[in-house]
Design a protein around this nucleic acid. Structure first.
Lengths: 337, 337
DNA sequence: CTGTTAGCGCTTTCAT
DNA sequence: ATGAAAGCGCTAACAG
């Protein structure tokens, strides 16, 4: 069987308490002693049993990461970055993939991470008051990525400003009739992005002296097909828009497809701009608003770790800047369509 | 503080051993007693400390999943599926994201999952003999997804056959000059897909009485840009191919871009087929060979769990079928280009 | 069917 | 600077 702390103690000729201290780099260990212990541990190929350590210390050295999906760009990117940050700090990442609504209910019902994580990171989930309450009751630091709530650590982008950037770009190109493909803002369990991005769209129009026209705002449900259908609706308007802002790249992909199938040219007939800048955007030559995903992930992981280790960290919200990325779907010069 | 097993035992008026049995659904507990225990546990909002249970039982109830990246289609898809399967069986998923070469070395050097998982699942990593050796030394079941090795459980597709399907499709359409965009087959740390898919390509040509022409096989390095460059090279050939088989969808995307930029039409001037059928393939109307990712993930998780629970499971390899998916990049009828 | 008891392998006072 | 000893909260014989 694998070596235990006693084996190391025996070989090094010290007590198990000293082995524990030496191997964890605690102070008050003579360096000669430490060397001896480290050598013994190496010889026996010893590593501490995490479960015994966790039981004895009360620390889980684990962060629970809760996501609605993992097989989508944003979430995969976040998990990737967070895992690396945690591992570097000696923490494990325990993944909770909610999946469907049933999975979500089961999760908040059972709270399976109870007693097994030091902190929780919730990624882009819209939570009810009860669900926030349940998280707070865990008694561990809770971090939010892509959303905000008073009393919780969080990291996000400014969706209003990002949408403004997109629409201001279209305005600067001379467009006056600009359509919006958005998400549902009436769903009580809604994502916040649809709401904020629509506000940014309207703000930008008003700032340019244009009155937002409700008829030019259609639902795309944040899917490719939804974006395609929405675009068809926009094109059938009596006075169709010359440019479209889609609240997500995915919806913009659908828009591109619909326009291509209608034998119209992008951007000459209709200009398209998305939001997110996922990797497909470059492939499809889509202008969009870049959001710094890895940066948000690193920021929230870092502060969450500090909250675990140093204890008291104030539950601030960090807002990271978005950036306009101009490609061929809005500027003909470099278009490949 | 949170309730312990003793609190429950006291409230239910039984011993802690009975609580343990009742809550874990073990036999030999009177149903009246069990009800009382369950009620007491519910009242105290009790859940067992996983660390104490793991320390005492020696079971980690955790599977370590080792991936080279998580932010790529195939891996995200696998993690998603495996997490769900494990969670359903009461197991945690501990993620190990190797990232770069340094991360990989650190991983196999330290073997950080030692003493903390009951099994390991390695996803599409090409391992050295030493690395396989290190895994075997863990003494736990090891599952492989996307690769195969005698003595290990594994689940994969038949890359040779899949490539044949792609090329046979092109041949059936009348193409005789078919180019190949592949991966490096000389790298000692190579993926196996490049090798197998190239073999399938050559087999299909030979079966049609065509001698594979080395000049028509170019390297695309499994990236979009690589696929684009490779395509340019193929188009500059004295006798350029009328169809191209890319060993991955990503390289096919690059091919589409290059062809579009060269003002050639797909599929009229050049037909393109990829391999994998990731979601972008449909978006880009790319013909490809579908590989069942979720099915592979479920198969290997299931067998790995059985190996953990029932102990002895023979280390078989399951090979799942691929399927040709015809879209607009090979058949003009439904093309949108 | 239920209770008693001895660990599981560490961490952490408290002495010295 | 080091050691002794008391847990951490559970599981698993074993006894009855």
């Amino acid at each position: 069987m694998a070596a235990t702390i006693e084996d190391v103690a025996r070989l090094a000729g010290v007590s198990i308490a000293t082995v524990s201290r030496a191997l964890r780099g605690l102070p008050d260990v003579a360096s000669a002693t430490r060397d001896r212990v480290v050598a013994a541990a190496a010889e026996l190929d010893y590593i501490a049993s995490p479960f015994a350590a966790r039981l004895a210390s009360g620390r889980a050295a684990t962060v629970g990461v809760v996501v609605p999906f993992v097989n989508r760009w944003f979430f995969a990117e976040v998990i990737d970055t967070v895992e690396t940050a945690l591992r570097k700090a000696g923490f494990d990442l325990l993944l909770y993939n909610l999946g469907d609504e049933a999975g979500r209910e089961r999760f908040f019902d059972v709270m399976p991470m109870r007693k097994r994580v030091d902190a929780v990171l919730v990624v882009s989930l819209v939570l009810s008051d009860e669900e926030f309450e349940a998280l707070a009751l865990l008694g561990s630091p809770v971090g939010l990525l892509g959303l905000e709530r008073p009393g919780f650590l969080s990291s996000r982008i400014d969706d209003v400003r990002g949408a403004q950037q997109a629409v201001e770009h279209l305005l600067a190109l001379g467009h006056r009739r600009i359509g919006l493909i958005g998400g549902d803002t009436d769903d009580p369990m809604r994502f916040t992005p649809p709401l904020h991005r629509r506000d940014g769209y309207r703000d930008a129009l008003r700032d340019a002296g244009i009155d937002p026209d409700p008829a030019s705002e259609v639902l795309g449900y944040f899917t490719i097909d939804g974006g395609g259908d929405a675009t068809r609706a926009l094109l059938e308007l009596p006075d169709p828009p010359t440019a479209i802002f889609a609240e997500s790249d995915e919806m913009a992909y659908g828009a591109l497809r619909t326009i291509r199938r209608a034998n119209l040219r992008v951007p000459e007939d209709v200009a398209i701009i998305g939001f997110d800048d996922q990797y497909n955007a470059e492939l499809l030559d889509l202008s969009t608003v870049h959001q710094p995903v890895a940066e948000q992930a690193i920021d929230i992981s870092t502060r969450l770790l500090r909250a675990i280790i140093d204890g008291d960290v104030e539950p601030a919200t960090v807002v990271l800047p978005t950036e306009l990325v101009v490609r061929g779907s809005t500027e003909a010069a470099c278009s490949v369509y």
